[in-house]
């Protein structure tokens, strides 16, 4: 499980960290502003968001890793604050169901097409 989550996390880093954003901006984009209906901390100008921005900047300067900062915040505010849903027992279905459905859909499609070709011959 750990290997899998490592792969997923590294994949996440590749897919999300496009461009010149520094680490801080990236972290702020992945945090939910709890008081503003679904905006990210990065996008929000609320008081709460400004505080979290400063705290994250401080922690980054202290040399904490991205993961440690996410851990710190989710410890205080719950997983609700993390927009990049961590892979845990309660989110296995969320992360794997799409792949299962994709394969299932593909299988149904394949069988259907195959069945139809055979009938012609």
């Amino acid at each position: 499980m750990r290997v899998l989550s490592l792969i997923i996390i590294s994949f996440l880093i590749i897919t999300i960290s496009y461009g010149n954003e520094s680490k801080t901006y990236k972290i702020l984009k992945n945090l939910r502003c709890l008081v503003c209906q679904g905006q990210t901390i990065s996008d929000s100008n609320s008081d709460f968001a400004l505080t979290i921005k400063e705290v994250v900047t401080e922690k980054v300067n202290e040399g904490l890793s991205e993961k440690e900062i996410y851990y710190f915040l989710s410890d205080k505010y719950g997983d609700w604050i993390l927009f990049n849903t961590p892979l845990k027992k309660n989110s296995y279905l969320l992360w794997f169901m799409p792949y299962v459905l994709f394969i299932l859909g593909g299988a149904i499609l394949y069988i259907m097409i195959k069945k139809r070709t055979e009938k012609i011959k």
Partner: peptide
């Protein structure tokens, strides 16, 4: 005064 320490207690408002 800056509200930063309160983050350690999970305060958001």
């Amino acid at each position: 005064p800056e509200g930063k320490k309160s983050v350690n207690f999970g305060i958001y408002g």
